[in-house]
């Protein structure tokens, strides 16, 4: 009984937490993360329609003239992309004509130097002018590209069209030409 009372009267011991080793460890962890830190560039998506499994047109309508019912041709524009060494060298823009025949515009034809940047600029202007002139314009574009077109160039083209608010479908211009030649 006496011993119990004695222990109650003892002054509580202050616990001293050793901060220094904890701080050392934290600094080591921080150094590890600082040295291994590599910010990842932000990736984003461009949504496009899947091409048909066998045909060169995707989902589709538009361009390859004979195979498609004429009613379906009116719901989209098409762009035929010429390329050399992987870079875009020409853009032929086709819009549905009133008589059933497509109106073809060779973009950048008035310019001396044709490169990807100037052609895409011309395409942007064309799409901009279509947006102003027509409210019920087609909302999708079918891109026909040659086999050797570089993917980065294709993405630039898709990027320009998507920024103007169009849905994109892809087709092979090489296969389209081969098919035409066979006929």
């Amino acid at each position: 009984m006496g011993a119990k009372r004695k222990s109650k009267e003892e002054v509580p011991v202050a616990i001293d937490l050793p901060i220094t080793p904890m701080l050392d460890m934290s600094f080591q962890l921080m150094a590890f993360f600082v040295f291994t830190f590599k910010p990842q560039p932000t990736e984003g998506q461009l949504g496009i329609r899947l091409p048909n499994a066998d045909d060169q047109t995707s989902n589709s309508s538009a361009v390859p003239e004979d195979s498609v019912p004429s009613d379906d041709k009116n719901d989209q524009y098409s762009i035929k992309v010429g390329s050399e060494n992987g870079a875009i060298t020409s853009l032929a823009f086709e819009s549905p004509g009133e008589t059933g025949q497509p109106n073809v515009t060779e973009l950048g034809s008035g310019e001396d130097v044709k490169n990807t940047a100037s052609l895409l600029k011309a395409l942007k202007l064309k799409l901009g002018s279509l947006a102003k002139s027509k409210n019920d314009k087609p909302k999708s574009i079918q891109i026909f590209a040659l086999d050797n077109l570089k993917y980065s160039e294709l993405i630039k083209l898709i990027d320009t069209c998507v920024l103007e608010g169009y849905e994109i479908g892809l087709s092979s211009l090489t296969k389209h030409i081969e098919k035409k030649n066979k006929k």
Partner: peptide, 9 residues
């Protein structure tokens, strides 16, 4: 049936 192309922003 669904397709996305990935690119750097």
């Amino acid at each position: 049936t669904r397709l996305q192309l990935r690119a750097l922003k």
